[in-house]
Design a protein around this nucleic acid. Structure first.
Lengths: 273, 273
DNA sequence: CAGTGGTCTAGACCACACT
DNA sequence: GTGTGGTCTAGACCACTGC
């Protein structure tokens, strides 16, 4: 399987030396556009496309460096640099002696890769795994606000979820989640409730959607009646509001999430450099 | 200047092939300890030491790759990999055609490298630069808690600062800062107040202390009387508590800081991947 | 053992910045 | 032009994994 398609973004020519050809034939057509990129960047893009297209799924191993070098007709070192950067972005994981694998939210030893909340005292696996409870799952139409953030149009179909996470029996996080309706056709409360894996792992296996990076906006807020009831704190209690926008391989926003965190016994941890 | 000291951590031997010698002579002594590291790691450590020793200061350029390769008696590619990693950790900055520079908190186009608070609307330079006001600067003795976090002994001399940051005239951040007394001998309220640059830049130039990375622990809290007064909010108002422990090159904790942030018009931003 | 990623080298050439 | 970092190659060998 797989005959080498060779590099074809900037149509690199390697006749004499290692030059990269002009973006368009001859000298007509687009000018002024920078449009040149190093070979390894082009390889990176090609690999990204294969990930996006689902040629290699989360958890799978991708072809070896030697194979990819042959496929793209470049040296192993060039493939290596491309993979290095993708690994640096946490899209791939290298394992010496075994191969290079597509990063997944499942079967990872970090069950909640994007969750930055830690207990003030104790280890990561403190009181065993988090208890998860789906409160509701509704299909409705995007508000202007949600549509804007998810790059949809007002009124487009969406799925709205609400769930609660508890640690050691203590309700700690109340989350509202908005997902675009089309990619998540078939997502139901039953499906979510009957699943043991992290939500993002379910998204990968059932919907082929891989959350790759995200932004979070954090504020301190007062508990309203609703949050107070779910989290078991008095109204007005200070809580962390964590708004997350998560993206897939193609940098398309695929999830909007707003979590309300109790921070009595936990804290949001962040590393700076 | 500078005659090659050559690599000497693991005493790499490159007689035939590129082997790295055993950590200790013969086969006696420590066994079971892994203790081997690739050449580029050793180079990384040597560069780190030069940074630590102040051989190259923040903002300076370090020797070129070719020079370093000669100095350490390795190939340019090996130096390159070492520098790549240090650049990845934001300790160095590469500038094509110019050289490699030691990262600094001064003259950066990001005036507050470690500050993650952004305005909800508008750009980064929103209302011009932040107004800074030093409220107090006292020299006292470390409490058990502060000593533990700063790796000091209870009762060791420390400097305690309090300051306020305002954006567009709005008091937004109230910070208490604890510094070890010895490295910061000579730090006074006058020095701080008369300085226009970010505090970390002052630390670099006046005390040779470069903050390189940090952890932050974030919680939602209620404004106490003190914070309420300084920040102009009612008591009980939800605020962000941001506790930071900052480290220098040698991974020694060098600053403890606790900030109280208003998040009415701003938010703490974080990227996940 | 063969296959994978990891390290190291040496040399060529390109892109950029200063002078 | 000279010097810097940036890209690319080709080949050798090491270290780990699993058959």
């Amino acid at each position: 399987m797989a005959t080498p398609p060779a590099v074809s973004i900037d149509s690199p020519v390697k006749d004499a030396g290692n030059t990269i050809a002009a973006p368009a034939g001859g000298d007509a057509g687009a000018l002024a556009v920078p449009a040149f990129s190093p070979l390894y960047q082009q390889i990176k893009t090609l690999i990204l496309r294969s990930l996006q297209a689902g040629e290699w799924k989360p958890g799978d191993s991708i072809p070896s460096e030697v194979e990819l070098a042959a496929r793209y007709r470049v040296s192993q070192g060039t493939v290596r640099k491309a993979i290095d950067e993708l690994a640096g972005d946490n899209l791939l994981v290298r394992r010496q002696g075994k191969g290079t694998f597509v990063t997944t939210h499942a079967e990872s030893h970090i069950p909640y890769r994007f969750l930055r909340l830690l207990p003030d005292t104790g280890t990561l696996d403190e009181q065993g795994p988090a208890e998860r409870h789906i409160i509701e799952c509704r299909r409705l139409r995007a508000s202007a606000e949600v549509a804007r953030l998810l790059a949809l149009r007002s009124g487009d179909p969406i799925v709205q979820l609400r769930r609660m996470l508890s640690f050691g029996g203590q309700p700690t996080i109340l989350e509202d989640i908005w997902l675009p309706g089309l990619p998540f056709k078939g997502l139901t409360l039953e499906l979510l409730s009957g699943d043991q894996s992290p939500m993002y792992a379910l998204f990968e296996t059932r919907f082929g959607v891989c959350m790759v990076r995200a932004w979070e906006k954090i504020k301190a807020v007062s508990a309203d009646a609703d949050a107070a009831q779910w989290l078991g704190v008095p109204e007005g209690h200070p809580l962390l509001s964590v708004e997350r926008l998560a993206y897939t391989y193609d940098d398309a926003p695929m999830e909007l999430r707003r979590g309300i965190y109790r921070t009595d016994a936990h804290h949001y941890r962040n590393e700076l450099s």
